[in-house]
Simulated assay, not measured.
Amino acid sequence: MRCAGRVWVMAVFLVPLGVWAQKASVPASAPAPSPSPSPAAAPEPLRHGIVKFDGKGALTLVTTGPLPTGGDVHFQYPGETGETACCRRLPLSAFKKVTLPPAGTATEMGAGRPLVAKAARVSAQDADMPFVGAAVLGEVQSVKMAPGDGLVARAKDGRSTASTTCVSTEGFQVIEKAPSGKAGAAKGSKGRAHLYLNLGYEVEESTCR
């Protein structure tokens, strides 16, 4: 009876100790390495453009390509007394690609980038007279009039951009400002837009300097 009891007691203690030893001999697996974060895409800069109302509900946008992948187009429009006002907004998706104006009618005089023409319909209250003005497009946070009848805009990522406008003897120009505030693109500053759209008629007094 005593021997059987001793064997039974040994069995009770030896089995748990063996299991514990077996578990202790298994090395812990190393944690899986964390995946490297993919680099964030660089924010797309805001673009400047020229808008032209035909007075019958059609709006044409001329800007440099390639276009931003999203965002809105903020554009000047004729005020109640014919003055330049800011700004109306349409989603970029509302614009459809159209044929560019004939050569010489629209040009990019700054960096020589290719032009893109897009068209959209606007409400009657915004299109009761022909008008040409400036536009800014992309992920725009805010936009307002700038000195020189241009636009100053802030992107959603915090970066800002501005333009000035002028009328030459035959055309309307939108010039992207240099960071210093000067219209450096007028002298061909690399990377800045200088858009020109022929009005189709002669202007008596040029405001371009």
Rank of each mutant, 00 (worst) to 15 (best):
M1V: 15
R2W: 11
R2H: 02
G5D: 07
G5P: 04
W8Y: 04
V9E: 06
A11D: 01
A11I: 14
V15C: 01
W20L: 15
V26P: 09
P27W: 09
A32G: 11
P33E: 06
S34I: 07
P35L: 13
S38T: 12
S38M: 08
P39S: 08
A41K: 11
A42S: 15
P43D: 05
E44C: 03
E44T: 14
R47P: 01
R47Y: 01
H48N: 10
H48R: 08
G49Y: 04
D54N: 15
K56L: 03
L59I: 07
L61I: 14
T63Y: 06
T69C: 03
G71V: 09
D72S: 11
V73R: 00
V73Y: 05
E80S: 13
T81R: 12
T81Q: 11
T81Y: 04
T81A: 08
A85H: 08
C86F: 04
C86G: 10
C87Q: 05
R89K: 13
L90M: 11
S93T: 15
A94Y: 04
K96W: 00
K96Y: 08
V98K: 08
V98D: 03
P101Y: 09
P102I: 12
A111S: 11
K118W: 03
K118N: 01
A119C: 01
A120I: 15
S123A: 15
S123G: 12
S123P: 01
D126Q: 06
D126T: 02
A127T: 12
M129E: 12
F131T: 02
V136A: 03
G138I: 01
E139L: 09
E139V: 06
V140P: 02
Q141E: 15
K144Y: 09
G148W: 14
G150V: 11
A153S: 11
A153V: 07
A155Y: 08
K156V: 02
K156N: 06
T161Y: 00
S168F: 00
S168A: 10
E176N: 04
E176D: 02
K177E: 14
A178W: 13
G184L: 14
A185V: 00
G191A: 08
G191E: 10
A193M: 11
N198W: 09
L199F: 04
G200H: 05
S206L: 09
C208I: 03
